[in-house]
C-alpha cells in the first residue's frame, strides 16, 4: 500500500511541477482572494475590547482559511481531472494498484500542494493583515491537521465525481458542506494561535486531528468501491 502511495504521489507531484498549475494558477488565485478580502474590509476599523486590533486583523484567520479552502478546490479538481481525461482511471484499476495506496498517494500530493500554498498565502496574510503569531507550535499542528483533513476528505469526495461530466461543479457542492466544520475548527484554533490562549486552540486542534483520521480511515476503506463506480 505504501509503495503504491509513494508511486502515485510522486507521479501527481511531477505532473504539477511540470504543468506549473500550482504556481501559475492556484497560488495567484489564493493571493487574489486575500487581496479582495482586504479591499472589502477597511483596515482602519478597530474592534472594541480586543487589544486595539483592526477588524481585518481580527478576521484574518477566517480569511486565510477561506482563501486556502477555495484554492484547495482547484487542487482537488485537478487531482482527478488528470486521471479522467484519457481513461487513466481504468488504467489505474488494471494496474492492480491498492486502492488505499492510490487514495493515500493522491491525498499526500494534494497535502504537499496545500502546504506550499499555506506557507506562501499565510506569509501574505501576515503581511497584508498585520497579524502576528503568538503560539507557533499550536499553529503548526493546526496547519498539519487541517491540511490532512482538507486533502483526505476532499480526495474522497472528488473521487465520487471523478467519472462524471459535471464533476467540476458537483465536487465543490459535495465538498464544501463536509469541510464547513474543518473551516470552523481551523479558524478558531488559528485565532487562539494568533491572539488568544493556546489552551483554547488545542481542543480545536484535537477535533481537526480526529476529523482527518476519520476521513483518512474512510478513504482507505472505501476508495476501492468509489473507483469501481467512477
Amino acid at each position: 500500500m505504501l509503495r503504491d502511495a509513494r508511486l502515485v504521489a510522486a507521479k501527481d507531484l511531477r505532473i504539477e511541477w511540470s504543468s506549473k498549475v500550482l504556481t501559475a494558477q492556484v497560488l495567484p488565485f489564493g493571493f487574489l482572494v486575500l487581496i479582495l478580502f482586504g479591499f472589502g474590509i477597511s483596515p482602519e476599523r478597530i474592534v472594541q475590547g480586543k487589544d486595539g486590533r483592526s477588524v481585518l486583523e481580527d478576521v484574518s484567520p477566517a480569511l486565510f482559511w477561506l482563501a486556502v479552502l477555495f484554492s484547495a478546490l482547484l487542487a482537488l479538481g485537478r487531482s482527478f481531472a488528470i486521471e479522467a481525461d484519457d481513461g487513466n482511471l481504468d488504467a489505474l484499476q488494471l494496474a492492480g494498484l491498492e486502492p488505499a495506496g492510490v487514495f493515500l498517494g493522491k491525498t499526500a500530493a494534494v497535502a504537499v500542494e496545500l502546504a506550499v500554498l499555506e506557507v506562501v498565502v499565510g506569509s501574505g496574510a501576515l503581511l497584508l493583515y498585520g497579524a502576528t503569531i503568538r503560539h507557533w507550535l499550536l499553529l503548526i499542528v493546526v496547519l498539519v491537521t487541517t491540511t490532512l483533513a482538507l486533502s483526505g476528505a476532499g480526495i474522497l469526495y472528488a473521487a465520487l465525481g471523478a467519472g462524471l461530466r459535471v464533476r467540476d461543479t458537483l465536487v465543490p457542492l459535495l465538498v464544501l458542506p463536509v469541510l464547513a466544520p474543518v473551516l470552523l475548527g481551523a479558524t478558531r484554533a488559528t485565532e487562539a494561535a494568533l491572539f488568544g490562549a493556546a489552551a483554547d486552540g488545542w481542543s480545536w486542534a484535537g477535533f481537526l486531528g480526529a476529523f482527518s483520521l476519520l476521513y483518512l480511515g474512510a478513504g482507505i476503506l472505501l476508495f476501492g468501491a468509489l473507483l469501481e463506480e467512477s
Binding site: K11, R14, I15, S18, S19, I82, D86, G87, N88
Partner: peptide
C-alpha cells in the same frame, strides 16, 4: 481507444 497517458509527463 484511450491511451491512458499523462499529457504533462
Amino acid at each position: 481507444h484511450a491511451t491512458s497517458l499523462y499529457d504533462e509527463l
